[in-house]
Structure formats: structure tokens, C-alpha cells
């Protein structure tokens, strides 16, 4: 497969054909992710999961993916127990990790950390989130959740709600949706609008983009409502955070006027943006979305670490 040995730093690293191939592969991995079938696709492989920022779903789903495929993980889940606490550079840390493992999954609070890691490592690097920049594997599983429901990505009307400025999942997802010809409706407080240069990039990809700050109007004809958390940890000052905290909330009444087949997605964790009462509506798809993280990451890892022909 063309992905063998590749770094996945940005969603821009993948063509629509490659994304489609990963999603097809991921569908075939669902029984393995559910424990109904077994696979030894990563037998003998060691994957380093280096997380320098808190994570629940991303790290655990990567580790579940590796272990379901017969591989093993080396895990850094706390920067405090590494030599980075002693001042070791990320560059040196990654050089060392690349000599201990077959691939590195990295999450880091600084934008561009995954690109640096890819330069430093002679093993493939997968970006599991770099600051507010990119989270390409989250975008893949978001796309899978949409594709599983609608059977296509082209022509879907997707509302992106919330923190479009700092939300890395939205940045990756918006680029992919633009490439697939989806229509984007941006619904964000003014202070959390999509960065101008990214909006320009989406427009250059031919995306149809509109702004609708009023949530009920935004969801009226939508197929997907993608909700994000306002990420307190990304704000340069507390005052800016307080000015937008709690400025939107999706509850059952917001969805009253929506199409019956509308799905609500959220990369999770949620912090009040989606009322638990939405869980009991047919629109809630975020827990299924969270599960799809495992088959998607299985497909990606097994493609990147696929054996060479005859090897």
C-alpha cells in the first residue's frame, strides 16, 4: 500500500483516494476492533505512544488498535517521568524513541511538534494532535462516522460549531471535507472564528462556506452537527476564555427543527456543550464516533507498518 513507511503529520499529507482507502480498510477492521475476529497484522511491531498532553480516547484507542493487531506499545503518558523534565529537547527524545520502536504516535502542546518529530525520526510518525494545529487521525474517524451514516461525504452539509480558532480537530476535518466537496457552515463566537488563512485555503479547495452564528438556523438543513469544546488550555489569557465560555449549548430543543437523519458528532471530551439529553435522541452519534477511533487507527497503523513485499 502507498502508505507504507509514511508520516501522517497533517491531513494535507493524504489524498482523497488515500483517505477513502483507509476508511474502506477500517470498515474491514470493525470485527477485529470489537474482538469478534483476531488479526496479527502488527505482530512483532512496537509502537511508541508519546503523549505530552492529557488524552483519554486518542491514546487508549491507539493502544487498543496496536494490541488488537498483536503489536506492543511503549508509552509516555506523563512528561514528568521523562528526561524532558531535565531539559531534553523533543528532537533528542524522538531520536531515541525512533531507535526503540517501529512507529511513533505523538501528541504535543506545541504546533509543529509532529513535523519536527517526523524530521528527527527515521521511523514513521503519526500526529495525535499538535497544539491547536492538526489532528489528522481524528479527522479520519470523523469522516468515517459521517460516511457510515450517509454512505458518502460529497454534498453533505456540515455545521462546524464552537471553537474554530484553536480546535485542531476542526482544522483537520474542514480541510478533508473541503476536499471531498462537502458544504461547510461555520457557527462560532466571533472571537473563536476559523483562522483567515485556513478559510482562504478551504476556499481555494473550492469549498462552499457560509457563516451562521445562530445555532437553530445553522442546523435547519444540515446533515451533520460537529460540536467542539472550548479548550481553556489553548487560550493565552483567562479573560479571553471567560468571554466565550458557555456561549453555546446543544440540547434536544436545538435539534427540534433539524432533519431526522442529522447526526451530532463531538471529538469528546465534552464540557457542557452537548446536553446529556441529546444522548437519548437518534441524533447522538458521538459514542459510535469514539468507537470508530479503534478500527480507523488499526487501518492506518497496519498500512503504515505493512511488511514489504516478500518480507
Amino acid at each position: 500500500m502507498a502508505l507504507r513507511g509514511r508520516d501522517i503529520v497533517s491531513i494535507r499529507d493524504l489524498s482523497t483516494e488515500e483517505i477513502t482507502e483507509i476508511l474502506d480498510h477500517a470498515r474491514s477492521m470493525i470485527p477485529v476492533a470489537e474482538g469478534k475476529k483476531s488479526s496479527s497484522a502488527l505482530e512483532g511491531k512496537v509502537v511508541a505512544t508519546a503523549f505530552f498532553e492529557p488524552s483519554t480516547r486518542t491514546r487508549l484507542s491507539f493502544e487498543a488498535a496496536v494490541q488488537r493487531l498483536g503489536g506492543r506499545c511503549l508509552t509516555i503518558a506523563d512528561i514528568g517521568v521523562t528526561s524532558m523534565r531535565k531539559g531534553e529537547s523533543l528532537y533528542d527524545t524522538v531520536r531515541m524513541l525512533s531507535s526503540y520502536s517501529d512507529a511513533i504516535v505523538l501528541r504535543h502542546p506545541n504546533e509543529g511538534a509532529a513535523r519536527l518529530a517526523a524530521d528527527a525520526s527515521d521511523r514513521p510518525v503519526i500526529n495525535a494532535g499538535d497544539g491547536s494545529n492538526q489532528h489528522p487521525t481524528q479527522a479520519l474517524l470523523d469522516l468515517m462516522a459521517m460516511h457510515e451514516t450517509f454512505g458518502t461525504l460529497a454534498g453533505l452539509k456540515v455545521v462546524l460549531l464552537g471553537d474554530l480558532k484553536y480546535g485542531r480537530t476542526v482544522h483537520s476535518l474542514a480541510i478533508a471535507l473541503a476536499q471531498f466537496g462537502s458544504e461547510l457552515v461555520l457557527s462560532a463566537p466571533r472571537a473563536l472564528a476559523l483562522p483567515e488563512d485556513l478559510r482562504g485555503e478551504l476556499e481555494s479547495l473550492g469549498a462552499k462556506i457560509s457563516d451562521e452564528p445562530e445555532l437553530r438556523r445553522a442546523v435547519r438543513d444540515a446533515d451533520v452537527l460537529y460540536v467542539t469544546r472550548i479548550q481553556k488550555e489553548r487560550f493565552p489569557d483567562e479573560g479571553e476564555y471567560r468571554s466565550v465560555a458557555g456561549s453555546y449549548r446543544v440540547d434536544a430543543s436545538v435539534l427540534d427543527g433539524a432533519k431526522p437523519q442529522l447526526i451530532v458528532l463531538h471529538p469528546l471530551p465534552r464540557a457542557g456543550e452537548v446536553d446529556p439529553e441529546v444522548d437519548r435522541t437518534p441524533h447522538a452519534a458521538y459514542f459510535r464516533q469514539a468507537f470508530l477511533a479503534v478500527p480507523v487507527r488499526m487501518a492506518l497503523l497496519s498500512s503504515i507498518l505493512a511488511p514489504t513485499r516478500g518480507g
Binding site: S89, L90, Y91, D92, H108, P109, N110, E111, G112, A113, R115, L116, D119, D130, G131, S132
Partner: peptide, 11 residues
């Protein structure tokens, strides 16, 4: 300022 190229890395 939060870019990895501004964090004292050897790059």
C-alpha cells in the same frame, strides 16, 4: 509563539 520552532529546539 507556540510554534515548536520557537521553543529552543535544535532546528
Amino acid at each position: 509563539i507556540n510554534c515548536i520552532s520557537n521553543q529552543g529546539e535544535p532546528i
